[in-house]
Design a protein around this nucleic acid. Structure first.
Length: 466
RNA sequence: GGUCCCAUCGUCUAGUGGCCUAGGACACUGGCCUCUCACGCCGGAGACAGGGGUUCGAGUCCCCUUGGGACUACCA
């Protein structure tokens, strides 16, 4: 068995999106599973649309997802000599020829053909004109007029194409830059790619590429076409469907492991298992378990996975990833230790780091802002005495810990013949301003004695003032 | 239009001729737990697109129909 070498070849015309990330992930997993190599290649032959910023954005996203590559990034624009060498071979063997039809003429003929009910394919006008290199001339690949080309897809099975349906595609533009279908073949050949795993929007390109392999006399790699990811409306996922860039999810407070876990299950499965660690993924991933039908991107399931991973991770490990979100909200002045304790109280209650950061405000505010409705309902005069007792009892506490806090509360409750449920909400309102929060004792443990006393006293003031 | 692909709950999926009275997960929903909200636990509703074959037997194999998607550039 030859070594497994896969590649991910994004074109730098935008950020890394969800679909590309899944393709990258599948390639990465397949290579890792087989102990092979994973190559990153930047397909920047579309000079007009490629940008430095996109390259950086893609690399950042790959790193965030921890999809590390063994070689590259290679840049196609730095490999022009190599394409020329292979182009020469095709020209010499008669598999390629020059064409001077202008884009305008081509467009016109396409329209005419369509209008006349014929196929809008290149008519082969320059095929046998024996043109040489010259300005405004492109190089076309000569596709056989007859015969069948078979794509033995590892996911979809054999797919047959009639060569007569294909037209002579341009393989080198008039500016000397190769086009995708040619560059991809030369790259995959020279990089010894063993498995080409890509989106199935490339299926129709594959016979052309296979023909080029054959014209070059080179053995084919294995092809595996992964079904598309669709939006809610079942069309190809795009910006119209909301956030589609990987980094947008980072900014919305998602954890990379959640995105990875979500993406891998979109199109791939391992029995009924839903949650996978990175090492399980590497161990289990097989192309045979990739489905054939396209899948709809479902943000709600991703959200559930994110909540799951927020609960699973240690609070300590969440501190550094949460920091940036806290900073944005001006909530920076706390130690890592304090944050870890605070995070713990919200881990089972939030779905994203954004929600977490928002919720954490209760631990940062100087003065609690009482929600009028909540205060009106719970900070009643019947609470005056319980609050007074609580305050003085807490003031006398030596060790302000959860357990001791609980017994202090219990003592007062017993003395007054009250149930905990009676004072829980009033205390919660005093502590947080609202009626929804983590458990009272865990929260007080985080806040500390001074903050708790301060808030209870303010609550008492409110009660007395009504 | 042409070429190609696809088709199990709303969504992601298990299922490879009998184990299916079709399983799991998200979402939805009833209940339990409970200091609120979550979490968690227990339960419910919810699908084999339609029609023909093949077979003793079809979600599983074949054909047709329907529906959806991709491609159809000097983009990738």
């Amino acid at each position: 068995m030859e070594p497994v070498i896969t590649r991910f070849p994004p074109s730098p015309t935008g950020s890394l999106h969800i679909g590309g990330a899944r393709t990258a992930l599948f390639n990465w997993l397949f290579a890792r599973h087989h102990g092979g190599r994973f190559i990153l290649r930047i397909e920047d032959t579309d000079v007009a649309r490629s940008t430095e910023a996109s390259i950086k954005a893609i690399l950042d996203a790959m790193e965030w997802l921890e999809l590390d590559w063994d070689e590259g990034p290679y840049y196609q624009t730095a490999r022009l000599d190599i394409y020329r060498e292979y182009l020469r071979k095709l020209l010499d063997s008669g598999h390629a020829y020059f064409c001077d039809c202008t884009p305008e003429e081509l467009e016109k003929r396409r329209k005419e053909a369509m209008a006349a009910g014929r196929k809008p394919k290149y008519d082969g006008r320059c095929r046998d004109r024996g043109l040489g290199r010259g300005p405004h001339r492109v190089v076309r690949f000569r596709v056989p007029d007859s015969g069948t080309t078979v794509l033995n897809d590892l996911i979809k099975g054999p797919i047959f194409f009639e060569n007569a349906e294909l037209d002579d595609l341009v393989i080198e533009r008039s500016d000397g830059i190769p086009t995708y279908n040619f560059a991809v073949v030369v790259d995959d050949v020279t990089m010894n790619i063993s498995h080409v795993i890509r989106g199935d929007d490339h299926v129709n390109n594959t016979p052309r590429q296979i023909l080029i392999y054959q014209a070059l006399g080179i053995r084919l790699p294995f092809f595996a076409h992964v079904p598309m990811i669709l939006g809610e409306d079942r069309t190809r996922l795009s910006k119209r469907h909301g956030a589609t860039s990987v980094m947008a999810y980072k900014e919305m407070g998602y954890l990379p492991e959640a995105l990875i876990n979500y993406l891998v299950r979109l199109g791939w499965s391992h029995g009924d298992q839903e949650i996978f660690s990175r090492s399980e993924l590497v161990e289990y991933f097989r192309l045979e378990d990739v489905g054939k039908s396209p899948g709809v991107f479902n943000p709600e399931k991703l959200l559930w996975l994110n909540a799951h991973y927020i609960k699973e991770r240690s609070a300590e490990s969440l501190v550094p990833v949460l920091r940036p979100f806290l900073d944005q909200r001006g909530c920076s002045a706390k130690s890592d230790g304090y944050l870890a304790e605070a995070i713990r109280t919200f881990q089972p209650r939030v779905h994203t780091l954004v929600e977490m950061a928002d919720a954490m405000r209760v631990y940062f505010v100087e003065k609690v802002e009482l929600d009028p409705a909540a205060a009106g309902k719970f900070l009643t005069e019947a609470m005056e005495e319980p609050f007074e007792r609580l305050i003085s009892a807490i003031e006398q506490m030596e060790d302000f810990r959860q357990e001791s806090l609980e017994s202090v509360f219990q003592q007062i409750l017993n003395d007054m013949g009250l149930k905990f449920g009676k004072i829980a909400q009033p205390v919660r309102v005093a502590l947080t301003g609202g009626t929804v929060s983590p458990g009272l004792f865990e929260m007080m443990g985080v806040m500390g004695k001074e903050a708790v006393l301060d808030r209870l006293k303010r609550g008492l003031e409110y009660i007395r003032s009504r």
